[in-house]
Nucleic acid binder design. Sequence first.
DNA 1: TCGAAAGTCTTGACGTCGTCCAACTTTGGA
DNA 2: TCCAAAGTTGGACGACGTCAAGACTTTCGA
Lengths: 139, 139
Amino acid sequence: MKQVVELLRTHAIQPSAQRVAVANYVLVTKEHPTAEQVFHAVTATFPTLSRATVYNTLHLFVKKGLLKQFALTEGVLVFDPHVEPHHHFVDDETGAIVDIPWDRIRVEGADDLPGIDVRDFQVVVRGKRQRRRTTNKAT
Amino acid sequence: MKQVVELLRTHAIQPSAQRVAVANYVLVTKEHPTAEQVFHAVTATFPTLSRATVYNTLHLFVKKGLLKQFALTEGVLVFDPHVEPHHHFVDDETGAIVDIPWDRIRVEGADDLPGIDVRDFQVVVRGKRQRRRTTNKAT
DNA sequence: TCGAAAGTCTTGACGTCGTCCAACTTTGGA
DNA sequence: TCCAAAGTTGGACGACGTCAAGACTTTCGA
Ligand SMILES: [Mn+2]
Ligand SMILES: [Mn+2]
Ligand SMILES: [Zn+2]
Ligand SMILES: [Zn+2]
């Protein structure tokens, strides 16, 4: 997409074909993919793309502020194009990570801790998605 | 230690020599060690202990409620003998994880999210430890 | 237009973390 | 005492991630 190329340019990133392909996936997703998920998703349409380039590109995007990086689930980093502050829910059963809007949870005292320069904080909620809501009227 | 043996027994865990050795390290530490750190620390005094047994034992302790397990830093799980709810600070520079008492931070709304059965939540704070406090009287 | 320098990409080797399994040792109750 | 169950071991294996050397591309001044 044209706008991805512009976005990379405005962040001082050369829009190579590989970077544009990665960007068109990872900057658009609502999920929180791992590097391996990005690799598999993008090589589906760009088969010659190498693993090293995926990692290099993701790290570059993080450095340039287009992505954030989290360690929330076992063993892997995930990438998040939603760079404004927000909280996360982690589904125990599937490992899925879901955004919680910043204003949905009130936090007091996290940025005023003795001896600490707080860079950021977030609430991490773990649990299960509820079974089908049966709140609907007669089905 | 004798009390570790008793602790294991009260949690229905056979206190084998290997488990006691692991317990004497991981149930006592104030740090949040990774499995590999546990492995290296305990093999220093119990050289025949195998990696598989360390992992088996840590997972058993988690299942029995003696430890909690978190993914807070890149690539590794950490284990925490402090099983009551509390928050965590992660030092950007060293990766060190430090407990924040539950009451130090007020959180409202995290357990009342639509469509979610919340099992638990915590605040994760990231930043730097401040340079030496110079609040002391004339040194 | 040409060629060098800088930038980018690929391949494949390597390291760490964690799992798994088959073979073994130890344990404790009949 | 004996033996089935429980526990342990070492090594193979897989996923994730890093790194460096070389190849390819783009840029840009002569
Ligand atoms: Mn930006
Ligand atoms: Mn307990
Ligand atoms: Zn997010
Ligand atoms: Zn803790």
